[in-house]
Amino acid sequence: MATIPQKIIHRYLRRNKKFPHVWCMGCTNGIVLGSLIRAIAELELQKDNVTLVSGIGCSSRMPVYVDFNTCHTLHGRPIPFATGIKLFKPEQNVIVITGDGDATAIGGNHFIHACRRNIDMTILVMNNNIYGMTGGQSSPTTPLNGISVTTPHGSIDPVFDICKLAIGAGATFVARATAFHTIETSKIIRDAVIHKGTSVVEIMSTCHVSYGKLNKKGGPAEMLRFLKDNSITIAEAEKLEPEKKEGKIIRGIFHKVEQPEYCERYQALCDSLQKDEKPEAASPKKEEAKK
């Protein structure tokens, strides 16, 4: 048998789906999907032990193409579905894939409460600064003065910092990656899947059709080059002066702490209640014995 070039990704794609995929040419969702598949392949997880849950949006189309357990759910509600899956099958590696609007605007409440509970799941937030699928409306992460269909003269709303939001809400692993740095993104996703507790990874991606065209950011290659030139690691950011840091994307692992996980606490509660019941059931006999 002849040797075949090792392209790991094709082993994980669904063969009965229509390819090329539905995303626009040069959309970074495909690159991030590749990074995600490489991370799972490096972890050597079985396909049956991985569950991808997604909401609605461009990035949420991702689970459709990969051969894991997948769930394509309502707009903004992938985290409640994932919570249910995780509580019913705690051995599953649950990965939630949402967009910036899906996670912070429409499902914002679910997002912060999943972080608060510290339930063991990985939330990948694909941040492309806009609602790409519905035609380019401004999202909570559209930059100040960024032009969108609903803000034709520039957005005046301050921007959500998803990483700070997640840390404030109580997530135990918070990191930011970009679509361009594929090896680093794979490493961060791998660490996030291993971590016990809510892991939030914000992945900066691009949308040259809805956001890039209106803001004159160029085509797919130019927007990827912007991510390459304007992102710095945490170590580099500490050395820079605060004035030079403006407009830069800081990537790396911001926050990592060990805290009791929700499924374990729930199981411990169930066990303790069952233990309490048995002595109660046995107590009448003891009373009889005392008599």
Binding site: K7, L13, P20, W23, C27, N29, G30, I31, G34
Partner: peptide, 11 residues
């Protein structure tokens, strides 16, 4: 290979 969004390149 790693940057192809369509998985069309095999290095």
């Amino acid at each position: 290979d790693r940057l192809c969004p369509d998985f069309a390149v095999t290095g």
